[in-house]
Design a protein around this nucleic acid. Structure first.
Length: 946
RNA sequence: GCCCAGUUGGCGCAGUGGUAGCGCGCUCCCUUGACAUGGGAGAGGUCAUAGGUUCAAAUCCUAUACUGGGCACCA
């Protein structure tokens, strides 16, 4: 016999063990039919899983199990992502705590530590997924930086390079000063900040009144190479052609004209800093302005800033403002709000920084995904994400894929140091501003001079990582033909064909972590090898992820999928929301509102957590997570458990041969409740199935919850009790068959959402259900094989239920003790239906001693319950307070009047409309008649009482 | 600035043209032999606002307000 309360822990352990032993979640290519395939969004190896992962993976598991139940070969590939910057940051924090300097440790040792960390972290994450019940194909575990995936990354890089889609060039990129690396445009977050707009005077070179520029960032002034005005702006026309001096320096810069300048903003004078602002960069290019870096990659002011050199951004800002003020350069300061950019990994302010980076050309790659979207070969659920997705692809910019960190796939580019003439790679002239306020000067050094000055190419590389290979033009497959000495190779190339030496130097940068993630759906199946798995499982079926990585990941997978296999990586993407705290705030460690899924699983069981998430996982919507929901789900699990206990208690110790099956039922005599629950059951299964097909687990969860709790437990079980307590016989067996089959079938439908308890219960029920599947997943959903849908019986039953509810309500309001059986009499058009055919139901559920038809008028001193088509009188001589009873009935009457009003309006509307369907009119009239009848009953009753 | 979602009882959410629902919370009653992680009965909402379409609007359309998000930004 089952325990009184469900205890999840031992059940979960045992079930996991048996699933593992049976390799239940393993998939192999098989003949016939397309498989259902999902690749997991690989969690970063940055630590443990959070509640968002629990949601993401519960969803995927639900879909995977659903398709297994449907008999499809289903494959869900597990794995982790090395997580680039995010993971390196975790390690850097650890090192900081140990007071170890990363650079002192060195790249090799650092990477070794990362490997150890990764191994442990993967174990933790996969262990947690396992505990969640995720039916991942454990034999297919992949990692974005393991051997096969490295091959895929190299192959992808090489192929794109050969197609001319990869290049290296000097561009203004988003630079995270803290992480010390470039970021792609979509790795940058924006937030509105209150700040100030400073009006700064740039005097003419002769000291006269010059231009007043408006800027939010005075610290970039040392990188200014012009001041621009709008050609139509008469206020500043007189300055055109003249030169102004940057405050604190002797550097003079020209006044130029450009339509881009908005004369309504600030002073109408724009300081132009090509090295630190995207628009200025464009403007600088148009006017052939030089780019001067006012800041170094570590976020300090550069040589160009004279005495401010070496100050941090914040300190320099304060200092410069103070100095501008005391020296009279600051003309005005006004409040101004502007958007600042922050790093999505560490939150530091992003600097636009001019540097050499690797890029993937995107316009070509975006064409195929756009086409497949338009053709409906790729759909996003919910659909409203398709527009942003399309817009992003249409307006796509080249993807900066180089990162100046250590953790990642090293860029597979090698430079022959000796053979290649470094001069060819260097800009013919390198401009460096040196000196101080006293004597700022610009030096032009030719590359030849640098090398002649004793620096070797190799030295230059090691001197300054941002100084290397300053080629005069972009490097790509085409241009490199004139730069012999560059090789695309995953390993150190053999000696150079040209010079015979093997002085190779590998590019120091690593690839954006999303580069390897983009290849995930291909790489997990062995691409670029033409494997059997790839042929069978690719393209995958569905991708399930959050909207925050729609561009970062989903779009890129589609681009890569098309680029290499000419197909979308998946035809469906399910975009879910994020899990917030119960008041709707984003969870964050600093707010202290994070929910640990393991704690929830520990407290309430895994099924409860999963169900709580699923029942709220409305497509695309964020979830406000409240622990109370998990409690409710736990209670539901317990309800299932106990309903099973009840059913088992009422079954013989050993199941009859073949079990209690529905086969013979259609020819047997069914009670109303039997036919009703079968009809409801069929509808519920259909709803659950359709909902999961449509990626709407919340609808499936809701349907099953309501059916099992409110209809099956609260009504059907109660109504079946009479027969179950009675003598053995056909009637009893009918009840048993229905109890067993409906419960078993509902549990199967529920299995994708709560795998553990359903598996456990299934094991106990299956001999009675006449089944022998080893696991729920092996047996598939309950196929009814007969149409049990019966709207008439559902109507009949709802009338009985309404009648019962009216008596219960009356009892409660008259404070009749719940256990006290009372007598009732009834009248009305449906009295016979309720107290004749369904007398037993009324007696059992309304705790009546007897219910008889009215003989010779209403009983005196009785309370009245008016339901649709039947009125009950409950004689309560001496007990009733007539005043109270009248009050109670008056309330019912008011409600009835209200209903009549609404019904009358509806009937009137419908009758007036030529277009109204006849059945609707009839339905409305019936509703009105019922309401009218109820009102009349109530009025009569009140009259009698008065 | 543009675009997209959302605005329904105390809280969290369903509900896409025909008399407003669920979970939690709240009130009252009940330890009746599946389950107090339970049962029964209640209170509580003119569905953000203003127009419009329709016989009929929470539901469709248009504006407005607020909230959240995406994109793009004038320094």
């Amino acid at each position: 016999m089952l325990e009184k309360a469900y205890d999840p822990k031992p059940v979960e352990e045992a079930r996991l063990a048996s699933w593992d032993a049976a390799k239940l979640s393993h998939s192999e290519p098989r003949e016939g039919g397309r498989p259902f395939t999902i690749v997991i969004p690989p969690p970063n190896v940055t630590g443990a899983l959070h509640i968002g992962h629990a949601l993401n993976n519960s969803l995927q598991d639900a879909f995977i199990r659903h398709h297994r139940m449907l008999g499809q070969e289903a494959c869900w590939v597990p794995g982790c992502d090395h997580g680039g910057i995010a993971t390196q940051n975790v390690m850097e924090k650890q090192l900081k705590a140990e007071k170890v300097d990363r650079h002192a440790l060195g790249r090799e040792a650092f990477l070794e530590r990362m490997q150890v960390w990764t191994r442990d972290c993967k174990k933790t994450i996969l262990g947690q997924l396992h505990r969640l019940g995720a039916s991942l194909d454990w034999q297919r575990e992949a990692f974005t930086m393991d051997e096969p995936r490295a091959k895929a990354v190299f192959h992808a890089f090489k192929t794109l390079w050969e197609r001319g889609l990869i290049y290296r060039g000097e561009r203004l990129v988003n630079w995270c000063v803290r992480c010390g690396t470039a970021l792609s445009d979509i790795e940058v977050e924006r937030e509105e900040r209150k700040g100030a707009l400073y009006h700064i005077h740039y005097p003419l070179e002769d000291g006269g009144e010059g231009a007043v520029v408006a800027t939010t960032r005075p610290i970039t002034m040392f990188g200014d190479t012009a001041v621009a005005i709008n050609p139509k702006d008469s206020r500043w026309r007189h300055l055109v052609g003249k030169r102004v001096r940057i405050p604190f320096t002797r550097v003079t810069i020209p006044i130029i004209e450009d339509d881009y300048v908005d004369f309504n903003f600030g002073t109408g004078c724009l300081k132009v800093t090509p090295a630190h602002d995207q628009n200025d960069y464009e403007l600088g290019k148009r006017h052939g302005l030089p780019s001067v870096k006012a800041m170094t990659p570590d976020g300090k002011l550069s040589e160009a800033a004279g005495d401010y050199k070496g100050l941090s951004r914040e300190k320099a800002h304060d200092q410069i403002i103070a100095d501008l003020e005391t020296q009279g350069y600051l003309r005005k300061k006004e409040d101004h709000k502007s958007a600042v950019q922050t790093c999505y990994r560490c939150g530091s302010f992003i600097e636009p920084l001019l540097s050499f980076q690797w890029f993937v050309k995107q316009i070509e790659l975006a064409k195929a995904p756009l086409k497949s979207l338009d053709a409906g070969e790729f759909e996003i659920y919910p659909k409203n994400w398709e527009k942003p997705y399309r817009d992003w692809l249409v307006n796509i910019k080249d993807w900066c894929v180089s990162r100046q960190i250590w953790w990642g796939h090293r860029i597979p580019v090698w430079y022959c140091v000796t053979c290649t003439n470094p001069i060819a790679y260097l800009k013919s002239e390198i401009q460096i501003r040196t000196g101080s306020d006293a004597g700022m000067q610009t030096s032009q050094w030719s590359a030849k001079e640098i090398l002649n000055g004793g620096y070797s190419f190799k030295d230059l590389i090691s001197l300054d990582p941002y100084f290397e290979f300053e080629a005069g033009k972009d490097v790509d497959a085409e241009s490199v033909k004139s730069f012999p000495g560059i090789r695309i190779s995953s390993v150190r190339p053999a000696s150079c064909e040209q010079c015979g030496n093997d002085h190779w130097y590998q590019d120091k940068d690593v690839l954006d972590t999303w580069f390897s993630s983009a290849l995930w759906p291909l790489a997990v199946f062995g691409w670029p090898e033409k494997t059997k798995d790839l042929a069978y499982y690719y393209p995958t079926s569905t991708l399930v992820t959050g909207y925050e990585i729609l561009y970062l990941w989903v779009a890129r997978m589609q681009m890569m999928g098309h680029a290499f296999l000419d197909k979308p990586a998946f035809p469906d993407a399910v975009i879910h929301g994020i899990v917030r705290d119960k008041s709707g705030k984003k969870m964050s460690k600093s707010l202290g509102n994070v929910v640990d899924p393991l704690v929830m699983m520990e407290k309430y069981g895994t099924d409860a957590l999963r169900f709580a998430l699923m029942v709220n996982a409305h497509p695309g919507k964020d979830i406000a997570f409240d622990e109370q929901t998990v409690v409710a789900a736990r209670n539901f699990v317990n309800k299932l458990w106990n309903s099973t206990r009840f059913v088992l208690m009422n079954l013989p110790e050993t199941a009859p041969a073949g079990g209690y099956t529905l086969d013979t039922l259609s020819s047997r005599r069914l009670e109303t409740a039997d036919a009703w629950i079968l009809s409801r059951y069929q509808a519920t299964l259909a709803k659950a199935r359709a909902s999961l097909d449509a990626y709407d687990p919340a609808a499936a969860a809701e349907a099953l919850y309501v059916f099992l709790w409110d209809e099956f437990c609260a009504w059907y079980i109660e109504l079946a009790k009479g027969r179950l307590l009675g003598a053995e016989g056909a009637d009893k067996d009918v009840a048993r068959i229905i109890l067993v089959q409906v419960l078993t079938g509902s549990l199967k439908a529920l299995h994708p959402l709560m795998p553990f308890v359903t598996e456990e219960i299934y094991a106990a029920l299956k001999p009675y259900a006449g089944e022998d599947a080893e696991f729920v997943l092996k047996g598939g959903y309950h196929e009814l094989g007969h149409d049990w849908s019966d709207p008439a019986v559902e109507g009949e039953m709802s009338r009985v239920m309404g009648a019962v509810a009216s008596i219960r309500s009356l009892r409660s309001q008259l404070n009749v003790p719940p256990g006290l059986k009372i007598k009732a009499v009834a009248e009305g058009p449906f009295a016979e239906a309720v107290i004749g055919k369904h007398r037993a139901y009324a007696l059992a559920l309304a705790q009546l001693e007897s219910v008889e038809p009215v003989n010779g008028g209403r009983p005196a001193q009785s309370a009245t319950a008016v339901a649709d088509g039947v009125t009950f009188f409950i004689p309560l001589a001496g007990v009733i307070d007539f005043a109270k009873e009248r009050e109670r009935l008056a309330k019912d009457l008011a409600k009835a009047e209200g209903d009549i009003g609404k019904c009358e309006a509806k009937v009137k509307n419908l009758s007036a409309a030529a277009s109204a369907p006849a059945e609707k009119v009839a339905e409305a009239k019936a509703q009105l008649d019922a309401a009218l009848a109820r009102r009349d009953r109530l009025k009569e009753t009140i009259a009698v009482l008065s």
